[in-house]
Amino acid sequence: MTSDPTGSGCEQMLELLSAGLDGALTFREREQVEAHAAVCESCRAEQARMSALEGELRRCEEPAPGELAANRARVLASLDREASRARGVAASRPRQGRRWWQMFLGGAWQPSMALALAVVLLAVVTVRRQGPAILPGAAGGVAAQAPSAESGLVLAGLPPPDEDGRAAAQSDREGVAMRLDAGAPGETTILWVMTNETK
């Protein structure tokens, strides 16, 4: 078969030549290809044409170093955003059945012995749903941003609203506790911001 230039060997050669281009031949198969090509001119010609095509097929556009760096930064920034969003959601889950304000007043918010903790209710802010303080968020929910620009606090991960369109979420971050009670569309949304004051 391997020495038959006109027989079924030629048929089989197409698949063997292809596999050869991918380095997927066994030792025996490689021998078979070589033996057949040695006596079959048309398969030798086919081998040359397939090699030429392969060169074109495998020719690639190369990424530029600047593009690699830019994409790397883009990917890592997305991951960071994702991670902080995930932290926001985790923080908003009630721990051990506690209410958000219990968490704030004790437990996770227990001050060290040296510090006296004074809780100051800073502000009760009412904003309108659909208003500028409500931002579209991931997974069908919304995120709310404190109205004060310099506070820079974002309450992320507000779950999708219930049937009446109400939703609530809370977040805490470095001495600031926030809770958002979002009313149904048209109703009042209340954003609570609380800070602790250490002396």
């Binding site: 197409l14 698949e15 030549l17 292809s18 596999a19 281009l21 991918d22 997927a24 397939m50 095509l53 392969e54």
Partner: peptide, 8 residues
């Protein structure tokens, strides 16, 4: 293997 050969 045969699909790749056919593709080529």
């Amino acid at each position: 293997r045969s699909r790749i050969a056919t593709a080529r």
